[in-house]
Design a protein around this nucleic acid. Structure first.
Lengths: 139, 139
DNA sequence: CATAATGCTTAGAATGATTATAATTTATAT
DNA sequence: ATATAAATTATAATCATTCTAAGCATTATG
């Protein structure tokens, strides 16, 4: 994300305070926030901030390849400032999403691999996170 | 899907013509249709069919474990009558979604596996399908 | 086979996420 | 300083999905 700020210097990407506030919030953020999550936090500082600005900025960053849109939550888009290849682990109890490094070798079955040009893949792991696991034991 | 029909005999699942038409359409269907896709086809036969009935039925089937809701398309839910564990291959050019059998061994990194109770996983493969590949070559 | 009870269907309204619009404001390069 | 292009804003619009309330149809039962 720091790169975003650098990368966009000297381009026609205007460094408005609203955008900088959104970038600052996203920088290193591993919570996979929705647009609303972002709006809620950032609009506290910039009271004039509009929801539209959040969406505009997220779309601009996504188009620029600086942000990854996640299609994991069926109710809303989530955003991930980590655009490197990695996977996700979803707690089906609390909904938290964690990152998993891409060390996992995965292959398409041969018959399909012959016909399909593979560009990438994404794994969603489902289960119970450690904190929910503990809560359940406590019962 | 045939099982749905059997399975629900004798239960309080009412076998209305609308539901049977939806079940028939879904039976063996590998197109991963959206609610609208289903409505478009099925409402041709049952002209009185309401969109709400499609949603109601899809939700009922999903809750009964007879249908799988896919969170792959960021714009809308897709439905898969194959509820067995398997993965998907998405053509980023035409949007078609194909099934991949679950023969693929995948493991969580050890440090994460220790803390997380893993229930399942789902892989999305992205690339170009054979038909789009041919079209592109033709240019 | 008649009927009650429950569950289903329906149209339309409501909701919630996201995008579009159009006027105003601001960052940036000159 | 200022022009220009681009961003912000409030609001309206759109699209998928859910809710509601009234009437209707399946199913179990007598």
């Amino acid at each position: 994300m720091k790169q975003i700020q650098k990368k966009n210097e000297g381009t026609r990407f205007k460094r408005t305070p609203q955008r900088l506030a959104i970038l600052e919030y996203l920088e290193g953020n591993t919570s996979h926030p929705s647009a609303e999550d972002i709006f809620r936090v950032v609009s506290k500082r910039y009271q004039s901030m509009s929801f539209a600005t959040v969406y505009n900025t997220l779309n601009t960053l996504t188009r620029a390849g600086e942000l990854r849109e996640l299609t994991i939550d069926p109710e809303r888009k989530r955003y991930d400032p980590d655009t490197s290849r990695h996977h996700h682990l979803i707690c089906v109890l609390c909904g938290k999403i964690a990152d998993i490094p891409e060390k996992i070798g995965v292959e398409l079955p041969k018959d399909m691999a012959e016909h399909f040009v593979l560009l990438g893949h994404h794994i969603e792991f489902y289960g119970h996170c450690s904190s929910c696991r503990k809560k359940n034991k406590a019962k």
